[in-house]
Design a protein around this nucleic acid. Structure first.
Length: 650
DNA sequence: AACTTGATAGTTCTACCGGG
DNA sequence: CCCGGTAGAACTATCAAGTT
């Protein structure tokens, strides 16, 4: 805090010099910190690929003059084909497809390229409604081909207890590092289950963040609270008869202490080598190891704990505010989407039925409109939960591309899968899970995905019904189930039914958020009570799909049979006048320098790598706020030069 | 005001690789 | 062979702007 009387001149002025210096510094700043810092090798390669494609097809335009139809044609006939072999998504027949998200990313990437080239606003072909329409059409096209969104597999308390019991048994014979690892893994399992934290955030837990007296954790950083301190995560009472994280922790500290490591300093869940927190990838492997050894592995991942925890919370009648606080959600909309399947894609997959109506049909209940604290309103089913925490776009029978049979029919595939599934089941029962982890993983994904769209939809609804019968109303948070004792940590936050005001949360939480959440709870309860008083629709046991959706994966619709590429694109009359070929490359080279293009072309040819956002060999390693290593793909010089180019053009 | 769409920073998951 | 790190692909969450 300065007293203001002695304002010294700073020793490091940002800019000192003439116009050129100012321009250079400004452009380098944009290159490094600006929104366009994504100008990286991927973008560069994409732009070059577009330019090269335009040239090869003798379109008569380049990336400075091309139009939206050129872009659509390029994506359809060049880019989609090129990335096809690497994509992880496949359709109902097992054929590889590029996910809608990836197409979205490439359009946005081209968009950024055009901006950097000075083609802002109307001059940017990617801003065209035709390009946006193309993306939407592509998404629909994939849905028609049986590509649906895949969610992470939710974990159940029972399964977690099987693993923890197994770990307890195992630790009696383990010594040294393996013992500490087992304690660490079990501790992480219990913590993630109780805290509902995102995997990456939960694994960064530090001992000092735990308030043992109050039985809470105050994370210093979450995705939705970058400053920290806004959320208070409750942990279960260690005096409970059941396994709890706080009950587990002392032994975990002891086991690391025997190895000479004090985990009360730094990260609790740390790899055996290195100082940082355990990585998500590493943790997933630990999950696979222990869950398989315990004989309960069904493809769980780090995200499964969060989903399973929330599911249990919903079942146990947690209030909306409690759940949002615990899961560190700051947006009601996002939480609703997560917890109540407010997912546009899933409703579209049902075949054009209006979203709200569709969701109601799936749940077998009438839709209810919620209105929360002045925020956007939406339509949600209550009394039923379908967890849909986003997920990957995938077919119902995704498989490794190299393993895909070329002409096997869908029925045959399903038959084979069924056999394999049976074999796996028998094998894991008799001899325990052995064999190649990749194959096992593949097997699990196949098990997960099963048949077609219809099956996926029915699976979703079956799972939902099995968790909570549609007739069952949500448990009021004032009367938690006995089971809730292991999920609701400490006191259930109750709030006065009609009294408004007060209620809620810990005193340490932000006032604004607290008020917001209390208001949310009130409004949500109101909505729920409205639903409970309204009669259930007769369609409660109707199948969760429309005829269109059932037939879509194999139906010979136009979308399925015709590639999403407008053949007339290249010669469209809407095209602007042709520019002299190669001029753009020369122009760019004049500003940015030929070396960039040279490098990009070589790299592209060598590796065939076309990633847009990924890091490059030039990626720099820097350390983030809590010492964790972040990956910054700055491409500093390129960004600066590109910006300089834009500035120069202006 | 309610709702939709676009942009983008950040996260998760998987394949692959190298060290012990 | 196990463990953990890295890179890349895909996905999530959020905000702001635009549309109804």
């Amino acid at each position: 805090m300065s007293d203001g009387s002695l304002r010294q001149k700073r020793s490091t002025p940002e800019v000192e010099g003439g116009y050129e210096v100012g321009l250079e510094w400004g452009s380098s700043l944009i290159g490094e910190y600006g929104a366009d810092r994504r100008w990286r090798s991927g973008m560069k390669k994409l732009l070059l690929a577009l330019n090269e494609w335009l040239e090869r097809n003798e379109v008569g335009r380049d990336c400075m003059t091309c139009n939206d139809l050129d872009v659509i044609s390029f994506i359809s006939s060049q880019w989609l084909v090129e990335v096809d072999g690497r994509c992880q998504t496949s359709d109902a027949e097992g054929l590889p497809l590029v996910s809608p998200t990836t197409v979205d990313v490439v359009i946005n990437c081209l968009n950024a390229c055009f901006r950097l080239l000075g083609r802002d606003g109307d001059g940017d072909p990617c801003q065209s409604s035709r390009v946006r329409a193309f993306w939407k059409a592509y998404r629909e096209y994939l849905l028609q081909r049986g590509v649906v969104e895949e969610s992470a597999r939710p974990l159940s308390w029972e399964k977690l207890m099987k693993v923890i019991t197994y770990l307890r048994k195992k630790m009696k014979v383990l010594k040294g590092y393996p013992e500490a690892q087992a304690y660490r893994d079990g501790g992480a399992f219990l913590y993630l289950w109780e805290s509902w934290q995102r995997c990456g955030e939960g694994l960064r837990l530090q001992y000092k963040e735990i308030n043992f007296e109050r039985g809470v954790v105050q994370p210093g950083y979450t995705k939705t609270d970058r400053q920290g301190g806004q959320f208070t995560i409750r942990l279960r009472d260690p005096h409970s008869d059941e396994e709890t994280f706080l009950g587990w922790l002392p032994k975990m500290v002891e086991s690391f202490g025997r190895l000479g490591q004090d985990i009360r300093k730094g990260y609790l869940f740390r790899p055996m080598r290195g100082e940082g927190p355990m990585s998500g990838g590493g943790f997933n492997k630990r999950i696979e190891k222990w869950f398989e050894e315990a004989g309960v592995c069904e493809g769980e991942s780090g995200h499964s704990f969060r989903i399973g925890g929330v599911q249990a919370g919903i079942e146990d009648g947690w209030s909306l505010g409690e759940m949002m606080r615990q899961g560190t959600w700051s947006s009601i909309r996002t939480f609703m989407r997560f917890a109540f399947a407010m997912n546009a894609a899933s409703s579209r997959a049902l075949g054009g039925v209006a979203r709200e109506g569709t969701q109601a049909i799936v749940a077998g209940q009438s839709p209810v409109t919620y209105n929360v604290a002045g925020q956007s309103s939406g339509t949600v089913r209550t009394g039923e939960t379908v967890l849909q925490p986003g997920g990957r776009w995938n077919s119902c029978c995704r498989s490794k591309i190299t393993d895909r049979p070329d002409s096997a029919s869908r029925a045959k595939l399903e038959e084979i899968e069924e056999d394999r599934s049976r074999q796996r089941e028998v094998l894991s029962r008799v001899s325990g899970p052995k064999g190649d982890p990749t194959r096992r993983r593949l097997g699990r994904s196949r098990e997960r995905e099963g048949g077609g769209l219809e099956e996926a939809l029915s699976r979703r609804s079956v799972a939902l019904v099995s968790r909570r019968p549609s007739s069952r109303s949500p448990r009021p948070s004032l009367s938690p189930s006995p089971r809730s004792l292991r999920n609701v940590h400490g006191t259930v936050v109750s709030f006065p039914g009609g009294g408004g005001g007060g209620g809620g949360g810990g005193g340490g939480e932000g006032d604004v958020l607290s008020r917001k959440l209390t208001q949310l709870e009130l409004n949500c309860l109101l909505a729920i009570s409205t639903l409970e008083s309204s009669p259930s629709p007769p369609a409660s046991d109707s199948p969760p799909s429309s005829p269109a959706a059932v037939d879509s994966p194999t139906s010979p619709s136009a979308a399925v049979n015709s590639p999403p590429c407008p053949p007339a694109a290249v010669d469209s009359p809407a095209c602007p006048p042709a520019a002299p070929r190669n001029s753009i490359k020369e122009t760019i080279e004049a500003y940015i320098g030929p070396s960039i293009f040279k490098g990009a072309a070589e790299h592209s040819a060598d590796t065939g790598d076309s990633q847009i956002n990924g890091s490059t060999p030039s990626a720099q390693k820097v350390y983030g706020r809590d010492g964790q290593r972040l990956r910054f793909t700055t491409m500093k010089s390129v960004g600066a030069q590109a910006s300089a180019f834009c500035f120069s053009r202006a």
